[in-house]
């Protein structure tokens, strides 16, 4: 059980909350308090729009522990509109298939159960194909 580890990541996992650099305006995810672009201190919270596109992806058939129940699933590098690239599961793909460059949007979903059915439920960001309206 990793209760403190999950709890510490709640904000970034639930709402894609990162940071913005007050010196060079770079958007930072995951938050690390130091700007990877200019090296300045960056502690200002920034909520990402959640919109981005698939940079690359792979399908997982042999899942690591805790993710077996959802196989097969797709993990992607998602390039957010604001710049950073994040690794996340894709979901709600349906019959569409996945393509590089496909527009996706962030949603909060159940990632896994920490341990067995008695464990903590871990929630966090995934991405789905953008819902067209």
């Amino acid at each position: 059980m990793d209760i403190p580890r999950h709890w510490r990541l709640n904000k970034q996992r639930y709402a894609l909350t990162g940071e913005v650099c007050p010196h060079c305006d770079a958007k930072i995810f995951p938050p690390r308090d130091v700007c990877p672009e200019c090296g300045g201190e960056a502690k200002t919270e920034f909520e990402f729009s959640g919109k981005g596109e698939v940079y690359s992806f792979t399908d997982i058939y042999n899942a690591p522990e805790g993710f077996e129940e959802t196989i097969p699933y797709t993990v992607a590098l998602v390039k957010l509109d604001e710049g950073p690239v994040v690794t996340a599961q894709l979901t709600d793909i349906g019959d569409r298939g996945v393509e590089i460059g496909m527009p996706v949007e962030m949603i909060t979903r159940k990632l896994r159960s920490d341990g067995d059915e008695r464990g903590l439920l871990v929630y966090g960001y995934k991405f789905r194909p953008q819902v067209s309206v």
Partner: peptide, 13 residues
């Protein structure tokens, strides 16, 4: 609901 959806995730959306 999808395999990764429940009342919590649906309420959030």
């Amino acid at each position: 609901p999808g395999i990764d959806e429940d009342v919590i995730t649906m309420s959030i959306e």
